[in-house]
């Protein structure tokens, strides 16, 4: 399996200062409720929320100055997966390992759990959070692609204290917004397929519902490229996949793989997913 890591595209590493030993002094707030966290954010200059800390600490080692770190660890209710009516809720602090082990998620979104058992490595899965992955939204991260395929929405507390539901592809821009968790509509059966075999060159996700399919393509774009497909697309897999590949927008510049290769692989991987969908393979 090829799985070269892609470094965050921004901010660039200040190569002249490559020590990565310096983390700026910061204040630490351990919030006990979401509102308390929000208030701390509003009251602080240059503040950031921290969950697993995978990306934030790496950015700080590279010179990102943060005045206040607001730890979300102690807030009850942010970690875990639950069913709320017809919607499945994945708390922002749910770790990748939690997802890979969730029976509830497996029951309502078959395929999700198996895919997540292959994301990152064991140490990252134990610490890294689903919400952090959505907020950081690096091009090769999996949560944005999976959630976009599933049409998931994030419940966000804005800095002013109001709550709103936002598409997952819109998360991450506003650092003062606090993601409480993600809702996946499960009122009708849905299953999730993915081909991560070329990650981080390319990943393709496919959510299959009785009413239609949605594919997302990650790694090659700043945000997952989303394509809605009719159910009968799985019958003409190669043609549909080729068309999706041909009409995909321009890829990001990368030294890992050429845009031509990535485009060609969209057709290959999507065709395979559509075939699996048609044959009802896991």
């Amino acid at each position: 399996m090829l799985a070269q890591a892609i470094h965050p595209p921004a901010p660039p590493h200040p190569i002249a200062m490559r020590s990565r030993k310096h983390i700026s002094p910061f204040n630490l707030v351990r919030a006990r409720t979401v509102d308390e966290a929000g208030q701390a954010m509003a009251a602080s200059r240059n503040a950031r929320y921290v969950a697993g800390g995978i990306d934030l600490i790496d950015l700080m080692k590279s010179g990102l100055e943060v005045g206040t770190i607001i730890s979300l660890d102690a807030i009850p209710g942010l970690r875990g997966i639950s069913l709320e009516g017809d919607r499945l809720f994945i708390g922002a602090l749910t770790t990748h390992a939690d997802i890979a082990e969730s029976e509830l998620l497996h029951r309502h979104v078959p395929g999700f759990r198996e895919i997540w058992a292959t994301v990152a490595n064991l140490r990252i899965r134990m610490v890294g959070t689903f919400g952090g992955n959505l907020i950081s939204a690096l091009p090769h991260y999996d949560a944005p692609a999976a959630c976009a395929a599933l049409g998931a929405v994030g419940r966000v507390r804005k800095a002013a204290g109001e709550y709103m539901d936002a598409p997952v592809t819109a998360l991450g821009g506003d650092k003062s917004a606090l993601l409480e968790g993600t809702f996946i509509d499960v009122h009708e059966p849905v299953r999730l397929l993915a081909d991560r075999s070329l990650h981080p060159v390319l990943s393709v996700y496919l959510a299959v519902r009785p009413t239609g399919m949605r594919a997302t393509i990650a790694c090659a774009f700043a945000r997952p490229h989303v394509i809605d497909l009719p159910l009968d697309a799985s019958l003409a897999q190669a043609d549909v996949a080729a068309e999706v590949a041909a009409s995909a927008p321009a890829m990001m510049e990368s030294s890992i793989a050429s845009a031509a290769y990535q485009r060609r692989m969209i057709a290959v991987l999507l065709k395979r997913l559509l075939k699996r969908a048609a044959e009802r393979q896991p």
Binding site: A3, A5, I6, H7, H13, I15, S255
Partner: peptide, 12 residues
């Protein structure tokens, strides 16, 4: 002229 993956995070 810039190293593209000369960090432990990016170097596989």
């Amino acid at each position: 002229d810039q190293p593209d993956n000369a960090t432990p995070l990016a170097y596989r």
